[in-house]
Amino acid sequence: MTAPTTSRRSPLGLVSAEVLKIRTTNVWWLFGISMVAVTLLALGLNMLITHYQLSPPLDQMSEESRMQMEAEAAAARSTAGLIKITANLMTSGQYLGLLFALILGALVVTNEYFHQTATATFLTTPHRTAVIVAKFVAAGLFGALFWLVATVINLVVTPIYLSSEGVAVHLTDWPVIQSVLLSLLAFVMWTIFGLGLGTLIRSQIGTIIVGIVVYLVSDILLNILAPLLHNWIEKDWVLGLPVIAPATASTIMITPGRAFEHAPPQWAGLLVMIGYVVILGGLGILLTRRRDIS
């Protein structure tokens, strides 16, 4: 047998191996296609809502509600209102997209246990921290790819739609760009979130179920509980408490201004997300380092 040429082991090679693992299974393009569908659907829905915000149907309304609707439409048509609308349109599809990112991240690590490939992986690279970091990077790249798919669609449709509504297009305003970039950060963060969760739980189906519950249910639950709690503790910050639900935190992080009434500022959402990523990512590395692979 011919001896192989000198090996060049590098961190980049490790990332390339992890990318190849994702690329040689069906998951990534299935999610990619779903991403297109979800973005188109969300964009359509957002355009419909925006249309009624900008031009509410005023006939057949009482004088009082007509005046209120007109005031709201005027607020929506203001520069601040249009920026918020544009940022919302430009991040269409991310609500479910982030869930895809979470599941992809979870699969990247649970596949190793489900298909018993962890042995081969850690034989090839006994430095487990390096393996997990390479997984973070590779999964993050695919998270970014999902974001790119959504963003390209939104970027094509949003200006055409806004022009058709006859309002100014604020694509290049900083809050909009910031929102789109923070959305990229969210996609990357949610893949790491999923990866960390996967190392914690290891069971593929278990991780996906817990991931979906954490993503969807904690958000809804806290948004129900916070107003109830507010009846006991009548402070405004209580209404901002849903920020500790990761999905709410990432919405707050991305939305320019306030995501909802009494919502904490954007940086609070960012901090909560960083907290989750550091804790789950760190736990992932720690557990993987200590764990027996058998």
Partner: peptide, 9 residues
């Protein structure tokens, strides 16, 4: 995948 991680062609 093993080749990439091990730096082999």
């Amino acid at each position: 995948v093993i080749c990439r991680a091990a730096g082999l062609p």
